[in-house]
Design a protein around this nucleic acid. Structure first.
Lengths: 209, 209
DNA sequence: TATTTTTCATGACAATTTGTCAATATCGTA
DNA sequence: TACGATATTGACAAATTGTCATGAAAAATA
């Protein structure tokens, strides 16, 4: 967490024991943030749910804001991992979109409430985080990468800015997924609608519709 | 606030005095939430900044969550108003998009930080608000309306679901606007990029590119 | 205007939450 | 087993959140 540049091995992977507690805290936090929301979740509650003394909470996280950031970060990491694992070698941007959307929806189904809670713009909690530490950006990076490649291949329109549109895709998915859920759309339908939308918007000569 | 169905005029628009304090509180809250964020803003701070006793805070809002919701709601209302005023009679969806995007960007410039803070998915603060009270939806309603009309006119692709895509547009704008700002894009450029994107995605036979 | 009634604001106080830290326990190693 | 390093604990102190009796201001009544 802090600078790991001390001694030799430094704390070298946080003495296991410590890491274990941290994991417990994060896991409890995840449950509570999703269930009760930020406001109604007290550091105490997290400690209790994690079965550690509440003093321990503060040796791992400075305050609630910090554990929330960690929570959001972790969720995003998980999603990223999940999606990456499910995308085979693809030949085109179009293919990629379908795989990615499917994976994201699957993840959302397996982790109800998680994306909704974790993919917020963390600026609200910590305005000083004006940098790019914005949580979503890490995941958006995946999109940005494929967008760049596809632009090089000349698959996409010239006015597509990979950087910008990577974020756009995140925002789109985030706002759309819960809504589709509320509207009772199936995963297939959701993926179709969004994929077509994105492909028309970005791909010069779509192969599938 | 409560049931206004008593006597005749009931309290009918909160006795002026009270409304005034409430306004002061909201205005102070807006400043602080943007400046310091949710976490670092205490109800006390809001009361102090609004120049009222801190007990007064609680007679207007139950807690911080509630005033945050009110803040978000108000900001959204303002944006909606602002945009509506700036959209003349339009002939096509395309035209609408350009006006709307321009207006939104102008609003964002005039109110730095506001959209970023206020357009969050309030589910994080209050998970029980699973309904459509989601803050963004009020504003999205504007998009949904024009989308419906345009679909009736057969301007849009058949697979465009106005309900879903209204929200999609919000998410897109929200995630994209701050990013464009960070990337140093001008308002004109931003509007162009996003407009083209949206038009290609939705309009069957675009007139302008 | 004087009197009564209602509504609101206030800040002292109580309750809860947050954060600190000296004492203690646990782990790895000699 | 003893030692040193590190992590955990919970009692305590600090800060915050929330309540409510009191009185001031506005509105209603006369």
């Amino acid at each position: 967490m802090t600078d790991a540049l001390e001694g030799k091995l430094a704390t070298d992977r946080a003495s296991k024991r410590k890491a274990e507690k941290r994991g417990r805290l994060l896991s409890a936090a995840r449950k509570l943030f999703i269930q009760r929301g930020y406001h109604e979740t007290r550091p105490q509650d997290i400690a209790r749910a994690a079965d550690v003394a509440h003093g321990t909470f503060y040796s791992h996280f400075h305050d609630k804001r910090e554990i929330f950031m960690a929570f959001a970060s972790e969720a995003q990491e998980d999603l990223h991992q999940f999606v990456v694992e499910r995308i085979p070698k693809v030949e085109s941007f179009e293919e990629y979109i379908y795989y990615a959307l499917n994976a994201i929806q699957e993840f959302a189904e397996q982790n109800p409430g998680l994306l909704r809670s974790a993919l917020v713009d963390t600026k609200v909690f910590d305005p000083s985080d004006s940098t790019g530490k914005v949580v979503r950006s890490k995941f958006a990076a995946g999109f940005i990468k494929i967008l760049k490649m596809s632009r090089t291949n000349d698959e996409l329109y010239d006015d597509i800015d990979p950087e910008l549109m990577g974020h756009a895709m995140m925002g789109l998915i985030q706002s759309t997924a819960p809504q589709a859920y509320r509207m009772g759309k199936s995963r297939e339908e959701f993926v179709q609608l969004l994929a077509r939308f994105l492909i028309r918007a970005m791909v010069k000569s779509p192969k599938n519709l």
